[in-house]
Simulated scan of single mutants.
Amino acid sequence: MIYPIVAYGDPVLRKVTRPLEKDEMDLKKLADDMFETMYSASGVGLAAPQVGLNVRIFVVDGTPLNEGEEEEDIDPTVVDFKKVFINPQILHEEGDEWPFEEGCLSIPGIRGDVYRPERLRIRYRDLDWNEIEEAYEGMAARIIQHEYDHLQGKLFTDYLPTLKRQLLKKKLSDIAKGQVDVSYRMRFPSRR
Rank of each mutant, 00 (worst) to 15 (best):
R192K: 15
T37G: 05
K83R: 09
Q50Y: 08
P4E: 04
Q166E: 14
T63C: 13
R121D: 08
P4L: 02
L27C: 12
F100M: 10
E36A: 15
V114N: 00
V114M: 06
V44M: 06
Q179Y: 09
Y8D: 04
V6A: 02
P11Y: 08
K83T: 00
P108S: 07
S106H: 06
M139D: 00
P49K: 02
E94H: 14
F188P: 04
K15F: 10
D10A: 15
W98M: 11
L120I: 15
R111E: 11
N87I: 06
N66E: 09
Y115C: 02
K15H: 11
V180W: 01
I132W: 09
A140S: 10
N54S: 15
L65D: 04
D23R: 12
D149M: 09
A31C: 06
E137I: 03
I107K: 05
Y124F: 15
F85R: 02
K28G: 10
Y136M: 05
W129T: 12
Y3K: 01
Q89N: 10
T63G: 09
P88N: 07
E94M: 11
P99R: 10
Q145H: 12
V79C: 05
L53K: 15
L65E: 07
L30K: 00
H146S: 05
V84C: 10
H150A: 09
D126G: 06
V12M: 09
Y124R: 03
F100R: 07
K28S: 12
H92I: 07
I122S: 01
M34Y: 02
K169I: 12
P19M: 07
S40F: 11
P108D: 07
L120W: 10
P88L: 04
D174N: 12
V59N: 01
V78C: 07
R125P: 00
K171P: 04
W98K: 15
T157R: 05
L172S: 13
K28M: 09
V84F: 09
G112H: 13
R18G: 03
F81G: 01
N130G: 14
S183C: 06
Y115V: 03
M34S: 01
V51G: 04
M25S: 11
E70V: 06
V16W: 10
I74K: 15
F58V: 00
R56N: 04
E36C: 03
V78D: 00
E72S: 08
D113V: 05
W98D: 11
R119D: 02
Y184A: 05
A47M: 13
R187M: 11
H146T: 06
L163N: 09
D23I: 07
